[in-house]
Amino acid sequence: MKPRTRSLAEILELVLPSLVIALFILGWELLVRWHGIAPIYLPAPSSIAVYLVRMIVDGSLLFNLGVTLLRIFVGFCIAALAGVSLGVFMGMSRLIAKISDPWIAALYPLPKIALIPLLVIWLGTGEAYKIVISAVTGFFPIVISTYAGIRQADRGLMKAARDLGASDHQIQIKVVIPSAIPSIFAGLHLGMGVTIILVVAAEMIGGSSQSGMGYLLIQAGQVMETEKVFASLVVLAVMGAVVNKLQNWLDRKVAPWTTYHDRH
């Protein structure tokens, strides 16, 4: 039975995080007001909030956020599909692994942002370039984690399946792939993170875009609308956190057993 009364430590744990955030914002507000800092350098949280509301009301926030999310979604889906399939094939066939290995080894450490000039030459500055750059970047962590997960499949479980009459093919499908799921999910989380970064970065590059959160940011920066810059950053931070939470929720929904995996 759980104890009815919460200890002091528990209460602090519940209250302190939000309290610290509130104090931080309050301190920021007071600092700006007392010292009369120009909003162009550091706007007060209250004026950032005003801008945020204005952006919501005129619809620009919803539109640009929607466009960015759509690009992230498309780029991520391509990366996930390609990364998981190649990772699984590599895990199952030594030949495919041997062929893919030098390519992955060479291209993975390459900073993908460095590909932007080339992609702009090839694809122009339209949607294709933004999706390709984000999909390519998301692809690598996903393929690497998937491959590792398949290769590190529990030998004991594979032996047990064989003992219970499973064929090699059945062992692959019914044991190896499911046991790689935690590692595949870890890859998808990493892939999502870099996809978000690359979409926003691609939107920011030299007039390549007329929409998206990256565009909004760079536009506001150029005309020194620092409130708008902060408002966009707040939105991006919240968006990242929400996407992450959504992914966690989906992981638990699709593979609830991963939450008990540590109990052996």
Binding site: D154, G156, L157, K159, A160, I181, A255, W257, Y260
Partner: peptide, 9 residues
């Protein structure tokens, strides 16, 4: 098996 080897999923 000693460690059972149940399929956790």
């Amino acid at each position: 098996w000693q460690n059972l080897n149940l399929f956790p999923w």
